[in-house]
Design a protein around this nucleic acid. Structure first.
Lengths: 344, 344
DNA sequence: CCAACGAGTGACAACGCTGTCAAATTAGAG
DNA sequence: CTCTAATTTGACAGCGTTGTCACTCGTTGG
């Protein structure tokens, strides 16, 4: 076990001072090219790895980024995590995860405590926490930089990564309209979840553009879960006047809609078209496979982490893509509206 | 910002040496009760938090545990993560996650490099990595302690947390037998995935106990994915001689079976009963809701982390529960076998 | 030819904590 | 009370880096 190779060993082998070795490992300027090479060789030869604790202690930074979330969707989280992790590792940082409860009264305090305890250099905030004033205020107060993934508002624009969420919802609604649907219901997302909530705007815009004013009772309030989606769909499908399409603000609620349709013996997409949003793994796994919208979650999280890292290094963040595009995924739950079929 | 409170400040306020403060923060013995209280009060008053980097540097440990995985199931991972995280945080440790590719040729090297780079104090291994000799050997060689979650073999028994996997599969099979099923097919798990693979043994045992020798073509090889499950089910349901029940070694493959049944117009559970294993969120979300087996994943991971932490502290690990129980979850995809219904 | 300059380098003091070991105090035995 | 042993405490030297600042060079401009 040669676990104990320190900067001194490298310095000795390369015939320089430890400071020069430090300069090389940190890519600092003002090292002659040949010196740099000599040191690099010594590092490689010995298999030297700087001790992160010593480095942190001396440099007064932890090389740790925190990922703070309260999101019940495992696939979302895993994607966010992987994206952020990739970006962090590439920059020599590590990622520390903080699940939390966004409804907790002590949220801001808990967060501040954890952040200071681990001496995090920065924080990546995901929905719905990125939209909470108490959170952003607390972080601002203790002076910890943060970036936001898919915030619902326009604040901190240069510290946020966003998608064309609302716009793509409009496109999806037009897709349904193009299939001949006129009676399109919408299952709204959880009111606490700003981004999911905004998707409704796209639906409303498209309907307005088509000159259709949806019945009031066809816009229902869900809570992002499969169960709430099922319940909403049952309510929508119970009445005599049934919509021919249901657009749910997320896949879970769309899956709930599918369950309701199955249970009520309504054929999808023959009688009812269903659309979701998120392209979770489940979207492909339910039957029929769900038409939905895919978000580049991984890349969003990676960008958010990169944005943060740039800021930590005082570099310009101009070349980090902060706007990413969602895409329509057409599968098997949307088809021509019943009356359109009769025209054919 | 009073970010800079160090052990010296506490020592000064409490009127003791820094070493005594250190003793208190580390819960070391040999501090008089009243001294301890005085120091604790000073700590509370100042809001002191030990600097982890300094602590790590001096103590030659990182207070970091690594969670190493290659598992495509987000819900499994989130549960494992949360369990391990809870245990780590409670002990003042942090958790660092390492997604990796178990088929990579450089797996062992990569792992060793990462572990040494971050100076991890220990590793929690999850399936299928916990069953790979190259991994355990590499960790043993660099002398990094590890524990295993749900390994498929009996090695490192005192460093592993296991469930009654095989046994509960037997129970599930008996459940199907009790419902009158005789023609029970089994979809096996991925051969690389030892634990999932072992579930087959339970099925085989139960069938043997019932004096039934399943047809060879009714034991099919899946690969843990929904798609592979669907394909297997189609194969099983294509023939003239159809099983009346299909037991899949995991929920994803069971969901695939459901898809196949839907597509072929076979009613579940009327004509075909289906059972899965894992109780993933999807099990409740598909239609009909899946009969399955729930594993205490979170607690398993927590126990594995605790086991590891005990070892790091040189404490006995006798009071960590290393055997956890799975439970049958009866939902809507299993019912009496068709012929039994006719008897009634 | 000299002063001023910038690049390249190194000596050394932090950084904030724990380990070691010796000193001081207290408790226990006689 | 005294002497010894155990308990409690503190001084101090690291732990392995980076930041600061000073020093040594060739260059450059005057």
């Amino acid at each position: 076990m040669n676990k104990k190779i320190t900067i001194d060993d490298v310095a000795r082998l390369a015939g320089v001072s430890i400071k020069t070795v430090s300069r090389v490992t940190n890519n600092e300027p003002n090292v002659r090219a040949d010196t740099r090479i000599r040191v690099s060789q010594a590092i490689a030869e010995l298999g030297y790895r700087p001790n992160p604790s010593a480095r942190s202690l001396a440099a007064r930074r932890s090389y740790l980024i925190g990922l703070v979330y309260d999101n019940p969707s495992p696939s979302y989280l895993i994607n966010v995590q992987n994206g952020a992790l990739t970006a962090c590792r590439a920059a020599g940082y590590d990622l520390v995860i903080y699940p939390c409860d966004y409804r907790s009264a002590s949220l801001a305090d808990d967060l501040a405590r954890m952040v200071q305890q681990s001496r995090l250099d920065g924080i990546v905030l995901t929905p719905p926490l990125c939209d909470m004033g108490v959170v952003t205020d607390a972080l601002t107060e203790i002076d910890v930089p943060f970036t936001r993934v898919a915030p619902a508002d326009e604040k901190f624009a240069d510290q946020s990564v966003v998608t064309n969420d609302t716009e793509i919802s409009r496109v999806m609604t037009h897709h349904l309209l193009d299939l001949g649907h006129r009676d399109i219901a919408f299952v709204r997302g959880h009111p606490d979840h700003g981004a999911v909530c905004n998707r409704y705007e796209g639906y409303r815009a498209a309907m307005a553009e088509a000159g259709i004013r949806p019945r009031k009772e066809w816009v229902v309030q869900g809570f992002n879960s499969v169960d709430s989606g099922e319940e909403c769909a049952r309510r929508l499908l119970r009445g005599a006047a049934r919509p021919s399409a249901i657009f749910a603000a997320n896949d879970d609620m769309a899956a709930g809609t599918l369950r309701a349709a199955h249970a009520l013996g309504i054929s999808v997409p023959g009688t009812l078209s269903v659309a979701g949003f998120d392209d979770t793994p489940m979207a492909r796994q339910v039957w029929p496979a769900l038409t939905t919208i895919s978000q580049p979650i991984r890349r969003m999280a990676a960008s958010a982490a990169e944005l943060l890292l740039r800021r930590l290094r005082d570099q310009s963040s101009d070349d980090v893509s902060r706007h990413l595009e969602c895409g329509l995924i057409l599968r098997d739950t949307t088809a021509a509206a019943p009356q359109v079929r009769q025209v054919g």
